[in-house]
Design a protein around this nucleic acid. Structure first.
Length: 225
DNA sequence: GACCAGGCACATC
DNA sequence: GATGTGCATGGT
């Protein structure tokens, strides 16, 4: 990151502008916290539309809970999640996550209530197939913990607007956002800002940029020096 | 037909 | 610690 104080004030300004431009996004689109967890695995490097198809398949099969997923044969589970891509890998990751959930809390997420967020994060990261972004999506969107989710869009936006290089370590970027937006009810801000960054990324801040009409079209945060 | 999408694990240097 | 590669579908 660039100068820390300048970085944090740039992040706050970014949040203000995106909130003004896009408003509340209503993430995560799921009926239950467990469905959020499933979506977090299935969306790894995948288009969300394809993830929705896979989740619909699971729902239609009556398999949108941990026991039911583990009761499916590996081949059957792989066929159900096929539209989300990497289906062999992802079906295995889903099973790992379900196995952990059942062992850890019998599938009752409320039992995580007392576990400190950093400890829960470490536990999630120890599950095969759960990396930083998946763990943080689960913590924020399924469990309501104050954790900022860094994704490829976040890095691209930071890089395009000179807030950071964009290739900094995951936890460095996450910590900077969390410090910038810390405070009571900050999980709400983390939730909206991440969703708004994705919206910005999909519509404007694409690999080949289409900046016409972008709410950040002329935004160049001050260097702070 | 190439490129892209709400990553992660693993091998190698 | 950095960099490269396999994993795979469906939309643009």
């Amino acid at each position: 990151m660039r100068g820390a104080a300048a970085g944090r004030s740039a992040i706050r300004e970014l949040a203000r502008r995106l909130d003004r431009a896009f408003g509340p996004q209503g993430w995560w689109p799921a009926k239950t916290p467990f469905e959020v967890m499933v979506g977090a695995v299935l969306t790894q490097n995948a288009n969300w539309k394809n993830v929705e198809r896979a989740i619909s398949n699971l729902e239609a099969a009556g398999s949108l809970d941990p026991e039911a997923i583990l009761a499916l044969s590996p081949g059957r589970l792989a066929r159900l999640v096929r539209p989300a891509g990497y289906f062999r890998v992802k079906s295995r990751r889903l099973r790992e996550l379900c196995r952990w959930l059942l062992e850890r809390c019998g599938g009752r997420l409320e039992e995580f209530g007392r576990v400190p967020t950093p400890d829960l994060r470490e536990e999630l990261l120890s599950v095969h197939g759960v990396g930083p972004e998946t763990a943080d999506s689960i913590l924020l969107y399924a469990l309501g913990r104050p954790v900022f989710v860094v994704d490829a869009y976040t890095r691209r936006v930071l890089s395009r607007h000179g807030v950071a290089r964009g290739d900094e370590p995951y936890d460095e970027i996450r910590a900077e956002f969390e410090r910038a937006l810390a405070g009571p009810g900050c999980e709400r801000r983390f939730n909206e800002l991440h969703a708004q960054l994705v919206e910005l990324g999909k519509r404007f801040c694409r690999p080949t940029p289409s900046c016409r009409g972008c709410p950040l079209e002329t935004w160049r945060p001050a260097s702070g020096r």
